[in-house]
Design a protein around this nucleic acid. Structure first.
Length: 196
DNA sequence: GGTGCGATTGCA
DNA sequence: GCAATCGCACCA
């Protein structure tokens, strides 16, 4: 069954690829959110993190499928939204093939609301009014989707370890965070010398 | 049924 | 440096 979507929006195949590749390719694209009233909020994606596969100890999926992580095990192209610290939501885009748990965490946007940037996944979700009602929602639907935006050259992409996953052993060091180098909206890293 | 904690943020 | 705040993973 063919989905109706804007020509500038990627189809399901875009999300069902390798998670790291999809994460990198999401940089520069526009995240779009339509509110119930019809208003559309948009922001350019400038920071993401990949959570890749069942062995990635930084990923919620590393302990197998649970009610919370079920969306991560679906085929790519839907949202995985969860509540963190009882007060913030984190918005992810599920990637890869069905049965392979993977997703890309959206961490920062540029100008989602008329010149206002959001820094950090909790604030990003709040700015676009994304909560668990969108958990499992299709990225090919009417509430949340991605548009082409402005492509980012390889030279402008910087890779670093992910933030806030120090519990993950060697996986904490994998360069799974992708950012537009030097962008002012990037999350601040917890105090830490070297290796960024 | 009870317990511990987190892919964060803001304030002291 | 640390409190806020609650769903859920895990154990009993």
């Amino acid at each position: 069954m063919k989905q109706i979507r804007a020509p500038s929006s990627p189809g399901a195949a875009f999300y069902r690829r390798d998670t790291l590749q999809t994460a990198r390719d999401l940089l520069g694209r526009t995240l779009c959110r339509r509110l119930d009233g019809g208003v559309v909020l948009r922001g350019r994606i400038v920071e993401v993190e990949a959570y890749d596969g069942p062995d990635d100890r930084a990923s919620h999926a590393s302990r197998g499928e649970t009610p919370r992580t079920a969306p991560m095990f679906e085929a790519g192209g839907l949202a995985y939204v969860y509540l963190i610290y009882g007060m913030y939501h984190c918005t992810n885009i599920v990637t890869g093939a069905a049965g392979y748990p993977a997703a890309v965490l959206l961490r920062a946007l540029e100008s989602p609301l008329e010149g206002i940037s959001t820094s950090g996944p909790g604030r990003l979700s709040r700015a676009l009014e994304i909560d668990r009602s969108l958990d499992g929602a299709s990225l090919l639907g009417r509430s949340l989707w991605v548009e082409r935006g402005s492509p980012v050259a390889d030279g402008a992409v910087r890779r670093t370890p992910r933030i806030g996953v120090d519990y993950a052993g060697r996986w904490a060091k994998e360069p799974y965070r992708f950012v537009i180098d030097g962008h002012p909206a990037l999350s601040k890293r917890p105090a830490r010398r070297r290796s960024d």
